[in-house]
Design a binder for these strands. Structure first.
Length: 276
DNA sequence: AAGAAGTCCTGGGCGC
DNA sequence: TGCGCCCAGGACTTCT
């Protein structure tokens, strides 16, 4: 599940390796992942473009092209973006492949087909940008406790689904939402409007700490996440609750419980995270 | 408007 | 042993 730390790791690695190269061709064994524009237009607008920059917004990677367009990649839940040499053995689920002018290839390998790619004008004039309604970036200075409290104001929903809502805060997915709630000692089924100011401050700090540590560890490899060279991340060994049902809470020793909240598997310490 | 539920997709895990 | 069912989840759509 590529969340903010996994996408940040990918963007940093790619920035060091492919900025300055030119895309010489596109192959799409499964064009369904090309969301916009249609396949022919997409190929036309990407081919021949030099990659000038790579940045991240939420879980999106944004490649700035010499034409002024942006090439946007979202890996969905199972996608890896791999940097390979042209002759290297092909992975089994490559959906879209970008050929580079140095005989390397950027391959979107995505078994579950939830990945998406777009190319568009970055001003939003052509089509709404995927991040138009996205909330603040949790690791930059604009994400303050006050801003977080304001995003939650008036919300009566459960706190965990709200953390997964990208318009509240960008970049959290199922793993880091569970980890942040545990670090803040807040039950995932608390209603947002019942959180006290001190709890919101704790949750804000926990989100920043968990994400920063995971970026430091180059992300979590849970099932099939890999970096651009196919290597695993390191953060899975630091997970406190995610994927640890039945194991001891590192803080208090109680057995971690797995439930379903908002339709998502959810890991909670029943002693550290009390409901209501 | 916000929240809840349904949808897509397919490998792998599990039960019988 | 082997088959088939169903779960996983990010983001979008639909309904209330």
């Amino acid at each position: 599940m590529p969340e903010l730390p996994e996408v940040e790791t990918m963007v940093r690695d790619l920035r060091a390796r492919i900025v300055g190269t030119t895309i010489t061709g596109v192959v799409a064994p499964f064009p369904g992942e090309i969301v916009y524009p249609g396949y022919d237009q997409f190929v036309r607008r990407v081919t021949g473009q030099r990659i000038q920059s790579i940045v991240r917004r939420g879980k999106y990677a944004i490649l700035g092209l010499s034409s002024g367009d942006v090439l946007i990649v979202h890996r969905g839940m199972s996608g890896s973006l791999l940097l390979r040499r042209a002759g290297d053995e092909m992975e089994p689920y490559v959906r879209v492949l970008f050929e580079l002018d140095d005989r390397r290839q950027l391959r979107l390998n995505d078994p579950r087909k939830f990945g998406k790619v777009f190319v568009m004008d970055p001003t939003g004039a052509e089509r709404p940008l995927p991040w138009d309604r996205m909330g603040p970036e949790p690791l930059n200075g604009s994400f303050t406790p006050a801003r977080f409290r304001e995003r939650l104001r008036g919300r009566t929903g459960l706190i965990k689904p709200l953390l997964l809502n990208q318009s509240v805060v960008a970049g959290l997915g199922n793993i880091y939402a569970d980890e942040a709630l545990h670090a803040a000692r807040i039950h995932p089924e608390r209603r947002a409007n019942t959180l006290r100011p001190a709890e919101i401050r704790r949750l804000h700090a926990a989100i920043q700490e968990v994400l920063a540590a995971a970026v430091e560890g180059r992300g979590t490899t849970f099932s099939n996440y890999a970096d651009i060279e196919g290597r695993a991340g390191q953060y899975q060994s630091a997970l406190q609750v995610f994927g640890r049902a039945g194991a001891a809470c590192p803080r208090c020793g109680a057995a971690i419980v797995k439930t379903v909240v908002g339709g998502r598997g959810t890991h909670t310490c029943p002693r550290c995270q009390r409901p209501a």
